[in-house]
Design a protein around this nucleic acid. Structure first.
Length: 282
DNA sequence: AACCGAAACAACCGCCGGCCT
DNA sequence: CAGGCCGGCGGTTGTTTCGGT
């Protein structure tokens, strides 16, 4: 079947969103929700296609988005999930509250892939050296089948849901162990263990306030109705309100006008958090 | 201070599957 | 059942920021 383009190219804007557009989108969704993305830009008076609006909302403006650097725990979680799920970013994002699939995908491509590669290289170096030592010992018989143990080092292709995905993942690692530790299960055991771990609550530990706050203690006295999740930065974590959407018009305007100084803005709101009224669930 | 390459991030594109008519 | 609409997803690209020289 012939598919209509996602939006008419004529007259519709592309590229980075302006604070004004954000304001329009946020205000509109605040008032009307987002029942129909395609119709939304027209109703809101935005010169964007519905898809663009949806992306902007889900990846950036949504109230429950946790911004800031990924913690070590989050990164480890992503690595573990990726080992199991492959490039199913949305499935991974579903396990990481406040993180979007796009964000996770970016982090994977910019940080974690490299980290794993280095880890893998280091591990293989160690393995190589160990093999060389063994071979240099005339008493040690040379192993003919010297293939790397793929159950531990998976640079292989996984077939999932009929799709083939490539994983640079490391060994299946228990959450109780650091990601640098290597499992020594056999390949036969691996699948069963993987499934077992998937089913176990330990594999996807409940991520609560303490999880995010582990490195950056939060003053929970400031966590109140309408104050939601934490924003981790390199050296601090502070709370931000449930949403500029759910806040007053004044807050929305402040949010927009301070868009470029987002961190400062959130910090201001954090300071003012005690003054904010009970915010309605959006 | 200027330049340049790398890294990081936001946004777009095209495809797919579910749902409705 | 076919066709169309819509939302969601993953891959990719474009732009901005950062760090080194």
């Amino acid at each position: 079947m012939v598919r209509a383009p996602c939006c008419e190219k004529m007259g519709l804007k592309k590229g980075p969103w302006t604070p004004e557009e954000d304001q329009v989108l946020v205000s509109h969704i605040q008032k009307n929700g987002h029942g129909n993305w395609r119709a939304l830009p027209k109703q809101a008076g935005l010169l964007r296609c519905g898809k663009s609006c949806r992306l902007r909302w889900t990846n950036y403006l949504r109230p429950d988005i946790k911004r800031g650097n990924f913690s070590k725990e989050e990164e480890d979680t992503i690595i573990k999930l990726h080992e199991t799920l492959g490039n199913r970013w949305s499935a991974i994002a579903a396990r990481l509250p406040g993180r979007t699939d796009n964000e996770i995908k970016n982090v994977w491509h910019t940080h974690l892939k490299k980290r794993l590669k280095n880890h893998q290289a280091t591990s293989q170096d160690i393995k190589k050296q160990s093999t060389q030592v063994q071979r240099s010992d005339p008493r040690t018989p040379v192993k003919i089948d010297d293939q790397p143990d793929e159950s531990n080092f998976t640079d292989d292709h996984h077939h999932r849901d009929g799709k083939v995905t490539t994983s640079l993942g490391c060994a299946p690692v228990s959450p109780q162990h650091s990601s640098s530790e290597l499992s020594t299960v056999t390949e036969n055991d691996s699948a069963a263990i993987k499934q077992e771990k998937m089913d176990s609550p330990e594999y996807f530990p409940q991520i609560d306030e303490s999880f995010w706050s582990e490195e950056f203690p939060v003053d929970n006295a400031n966590v109140q109705s309408g104050i939601h999740d934490g924003l981790a930065t390199n050296d601090m974590q502070f709370q931000f309100p449930l949403s500029p959407v759910a806040a007053s018009d004044e807050d929305v305007n402040a949010y927009i006008s301070n868009f470029d100084d987002g961190m400062d803005f959130w910090y201001d709101l954090f300071i003012r958090a005690g003054e904010l009224p009970d915010l309605p669930e959006f």
